[in-house]
Computed example of a mutant assay.
Amino acid sequence: MKTQLKVSIIQSHLHWENPVANRTQFSEKIAAISEDTDLIILPEMFTTGFTMNAASLAEETNGVTLFWMQSEAKKKNAALTGSIIIKDDGLFYNRLFFVFPDGTFHQYDKKHTFALAGEHKTYQAGQNKLIVTYKGWKICPLVCYDLRFPVWARNKEDYDLLVYVANWPDKRVNAWDALLKARAIENMAYCIGVNRVGLDGNGHQYTGHSAGYDVLGELLTTSDYEKEFTETITLEKEHVVTLRDRLQFLQDRDYFEIK
């Protein structure tokens, strides 16, 4: 088990519906990470921006972007995660990949599609929560709008780290800030949210606010919230174990099933 987990956050603008340009810029940003890192987190739909033009932009699961992620993970000897548009058995998904350094991967389909933008009309909602075990850490990766639904993120699995990748617009960024912190506190887990910046092709403005919080809701990141940045933070397993043992809040969880 690795007692520390170094996690790199990449907050970036996205080239609208231009996978080649986005893969190129993220290759450069990943290569520029000078310190050792275990996990690199990219935003939601990092190859395209948050678009409903799935028919023109979707890839097969084993398409060029997954191959690119596998290549980048191997070069950096770090896991890599983010979501892209996937066509699978005739349906479109906002699918997150968690790619290990050896090229193996897990996938998670966004559970809560964003009805306000019509996402539910284009993309199939996922049904299964994913818990990734990596270097002795249990990680729960989720996507954007999932952040508003605490029952789905509820820590029944005793995970150590909750991750959200997002395209969360500026007009509701106060909710992003509040909910990220709340998810960390209520689940007694580290919580990291990675958002984008800039203007998208639909005229929506994004101001980032990517951040990491510890199990008590203390802010760990120090970069300027609203600009492009890459920052690596160190998570401590002892922090999670010690505070859970001392406070035992998770032992008082209510028990119920999602139907």
Rank of each mutant, 00 (worst) to 15 (best):
G193R: 06
D177P: 00
N174C: 08
S210D: 04
Q124N: 11
V241R: 10
V241Y: 15
D146S: 11
P150R: 14
T230S: 15
L39D: 05
V99Q: 01
V20T: 13
E59R: 04
I86H: 04
L179S: 02
S71F: 12
A54E: 05
N202E: 15
W137E: 07
I86R: 02
V197M: 03
T234N: 01
K156E: 15
N94T: 13
L57H: 00
T51Y: 04
W137Y: 06
T3Y: 14
D252L: 14
K75E: 03
T24F: 10
E238P: 10
D200L: 09
N18I: 00
Q70I: 08
T61M: 07
N167R: 01
R172L: 12
R253F: 15
E226N: 10
N77L: 08
D245C: 06
E238L: 13
N202L: 15
R253V: 07
V197N: 04
V194Q: 03
V163D: 01
I185T: 08
E228W: 07
Y93A: 06
T133A: 10
L66H: 08
L80P: 05
T61G: 03
H106T: 10
V215N: 01
G82S: 04
L147P: 10
F256D: 14
T65S: 04
Y206L: 13
P101L: 11
K156M: 13
N22P: 06
V241Q: 12
G126T: 13
S83Y: 02
I40N: 06
D38Q: 02
E186V: 11
D146L: 12
G118M: 11
F249W: 12
L5Y: 11
Y190W: 12
K181N: 05
V132A: 00
A184C: 01
F256V: 08
A153P: 08
D36P: 15
G198Y: 06
E226K: 07
H112R: 14
F98S: 00
D200I: 13
Y123D: 00
C191M: 11
T104G: 10
S223I: 01
T104D: 14
G82L: 05
L14Y: 08
Y145N: 13
Q107Y: 06
Q127M: 09
L243I: 14
W16Y: 14
G49S: 13
S71C: 00
T104M: 11
D177R: 01
F50R: 09
M52L: 11
E231V: 07
K87D: 06
R244T: 07
F249G: 00
Q70W: 07
F46G: 07
I86Y: 05
V165C: 01
T133W: 00
